[in-house]
Design a protein around this nucleic acid. Structure first.
Lengths: 248, 248
DNA sequence: CGCAGGATTGAGCCCCATCAAACCCAGTGG
DNA sequence: CCACTGGGTTTGATGGGGCTCAATCCTGCG
């Protein structure tokens, strides 16, 4: 696994021995550069390798009743098609938003390493668990929140995830998303996303121009969005200080 | 793991040796009976065991901006809190809808077995992968579909999942859900869910009365909902006949 | 028989979608 | 240097799908 941030994140949730870490780091991979709009994996493709996002952003999308619905955003360190190990057919497009670079790791090789080091499989399972928690939060976001808190929640989630991999400091980050991307993710029209963002600006909660987003009042934004970062970080609310789990 | 259907489902996705199967079946567990509305796990609880649903239905829910949002339904054979192995704090209520029975398996014991039989961990990881796919489909459902196809999609999903564990034959199944439950899951008001269901009845697509649901025109219903069962079954569209995966 | 929870119906309204046009700005090429 | 272009953003006007409120009906049950 090529990405240092991924390693760190795995260590934050699962404890790994030196040998296990080395096995991860030593995995052979191929690097690919992508331009804005490039499609990494097409809906219907059979995956024979996993993708690790190194820089930039990917989004998972698919046309649902004439709408392009985005069901996930990925930030550096994420493995968007980790589930491909289990269910090899992709049922979405995986698309680069802005330029990005990815590394691909062969399923065959990865499976071999997982067999040799079962704790690594357990750690990657934990990644799937966190991705699932993020999906759940999107379900709640789309199902229950009005436009303003909905957009705010997505902003908070992205900020937290970017912060986790060192790509957001002081609430500032580089975001190549268009308002249309946000609309596709939030189940809103671009027009309404635009008005919602204007409202967030008017309240001086965010500053977003030329691909740079700054969260000005993090606390208030999180309050409006009812956002709690724990699910992103795989943390337990009641025991933030507990040591990482380890199989066995 | 007490539930035969769970075992079968695990076998459908991952190949397990006799020893592995025996280890699963031999896991010690405690049975609990639940009444309608009973809460199995409260939001904020720290889990020390996993829950296997044996009969009945559970729903995962949580109040989001004054709405009770349901983010998942569980059918017999499901393990609603499998993620608790990795992130022990539950951030939702797990609630019985209608009467149900569950079995609980201690995390400590389960972890030991997973250490002894890594392939079992891989198989359970596959369960998490499928759950995640279901969440993704909910995201799409809530984000992109109008009321009618949205409700239809949920009906198709439940039918497919129940069919898989032998609880729906010929499109007929027992469903203890109220229209309000459906409203909470679909992000709609009860009033509108009611009108939507009436429309489905008027079109002779479903028959739903006194807790019994029958899908009358499965094909047309799936077409309206743009429903494809593969994600529920962990199947690959392009190779439905391929043999199950196995680690290594 | 009376009650309570669920299903149903009606009326009014609002949030957000849709349509359409204008605006801004960074390239790009003449 | 500037006209041209195209993608993204912004604004206005209009309409509809679904929400809210409130009343009624239905049905199983003590």
């Amino acid at each position: 696994m090529p990405h240092q941030k991924l390693i760190e994140r795995l260590l934050a949730v699962s404890r790994l021995s030196n040998g296990e870490q080395k096995a991860l780091v030593g995995l052979p991979y191929a690097v690919r550069n992508l331009a804005d709009g490039d499609i990494v994996v097409h809906q219907g493709d059979r995956a024979s390798c996993c993708t690790v996002l190194m820089t930039g952003f990917l989004s998972r999308q698919r046309v649902i009743s004439d709408r392009n619905q985005i069901s996930a955003f990925y930030v550096p360190g994420d493995i968007p098609d980790l589930h491909g190990l289990h269910v090899p057919t992709m049922d979405h497009d995986l698309c680069s938003t802005g330029p990005s670079t990815i590394a691909t790791v062969s399923h065959v090789v990865l499976r071999q390493v997982l067999e040799d080091f079962p704790a690594l499989g357990y750690a990657l399972w934990g990644e799937t668990v966190i991705q699932a928690a993020i999906y759940r939060n999107w379900v709640e976001n789309l199902g229950a929140r009005a436009a303003l808190p909905r957009v705010a929640h997505l902003l908070c989630e992205l900020a937290t995830r970017l912060q986790q991999v060192g790509l957001a400091t002081g609430g500032r980050m580089n975001l190549p998303f268009t308002q249309a991307d946000f609309a596709d993710a939030c189940g809103l029209s671009t027009v309404h996303v635009n008005r919602t963002i204007q409202e967030l600006r008017r309240r001086r909660l965010i500053d977003w121009q030329s691909q740079t987003l700054e969260l000005l009042e993090r606390a208030e934004l999180e309050s409006i969005a009812e956002f709690n970062p724990d699910y992103v970080l795989g943390r337990s609310k009641l025991a933030p200080d507990q040591s990482p789990l380890r199989l066995g």
